[in-house]
Design a binder for these strands. Sequence first.
DNA 1: GCCGGATATGTAATACTATAACATAGGCGG
DNA 2: CCGCCTATGTTATAGTATTACATATCCGGC
Lengths: 133, 133
Amino acid sequence: MAAEFSRRTESLLHRAEAICEHRGANLTELRRHVLGMILDSASPTGAYELLDRLRATRRGAAPPTVYRTLDFLLEQGLIHRVERLSAFVGCVAGCTVDPDGESHTHAAQFLICRKCGRVVEMQDHDVSSVLAR
Amino acid sequence: MAAEFSRRTESLLHRAEAICEHRGANLTELRRHVLGMILDSASPTGAYELLDRLRATRRGAAPPTVYRTLDFLLEQGLIHRVERLSAFVGCVAGCTVDPDGESHTHAAQFLICRKCGRVVEMQDHDVSSVLAR
DNA sequence: GCCGGATATGTAATACTATAACATAGGCGG
DNA sequence: CCGCCTATGTTATAGTATTACATATCCGGC
C-alpha cells in the first residue's frame, strides 16, 4: 500500500508504531506515510513538498491533510519543526525512545548549516539547563 | 515629519543614526521610521503590521517596501528576526553598541513566553559557546 | 441492530508571510 | 550631460498555514 522506505526508516516506523500503540495513539496509514517520508528524507521537508508527494497516491490530499498530520506527529514527539526553515525533520529521540516514556516532547537544538542547509539535531543538557533559568 | 516615538525610542534612534553614519550606511527617513516602530513596540512586530502602519503616512507602501527595509536593519544589526513568530524586534545591543564596533551581528537567544507572547532577548555566553562547538 | 459520540479525513476558501521582476527617481562623479 | 549606483515604487505571484464546514468510520452502550 504505502510507499516503500529505506530499511532504516522502516525500522523507525516500526518503533513509532509500538510507541503509539502503547500510548493509545492512532498511527494511521496516512500518518505513518507522512512520518515515513520525513524520516526517509536527508534534509528537512516542507509541508507542501510532503503534500505533493502525498498526492501521488492520495487523490484528495490538501493542505489541512498535511498540517493535521504534522500536528499529530509533533504532539507525539515523532518529529520536530525547524522554524528557521518552515520545515520538518524526524526526531531521533522520539522514534527510538522506550515506549514507556510518557514525555512526548523533549529539549533539542538544531545546528543549521548556512551553506548547505543540512540540519543536525543536538541535545545538549548544558544548553537546555541554561535556557531553563 | 515622522511619527513621534517614546523618549526611549528616540534616544535609541539617535544612537542608530550615529552608528549608520559612522559606517557610511544610509538610515533614510523610511528606515528610521520602521526602526522606530519596531523599537517602540512592546512585542515583536510582524511585517504586515508594520506595513499597515506605514500606510497611514506613506501612500505607496507595499510588501517590498517593508521587507527591504527590514533587510537593511537586519544587516546593520539593529533588529532581530524572531523566526518562531515571523516577527521582528529591536536589538538592544545593536542600538547601543559603540559606533566603532564593526560586527553587525552578534549571538543572541530569545525566550518566548508561550502564554503571553512576550519576548526577552538574552545573550548568554555559555549558550553561545556550547553552540559554537 | 442502531444510536450517539469521538476521531479522522475530505473539501473549499481564504489569510498570512515573503519574493520576483521590472519601473522610476535622485544623487554624484566624470 | 551621461552613466552608474542606491533607494523606492509598483504589480504580480510564490510559499506557508488556518478556518469552517462536510463526510466517513469506528466503537461502546443500549
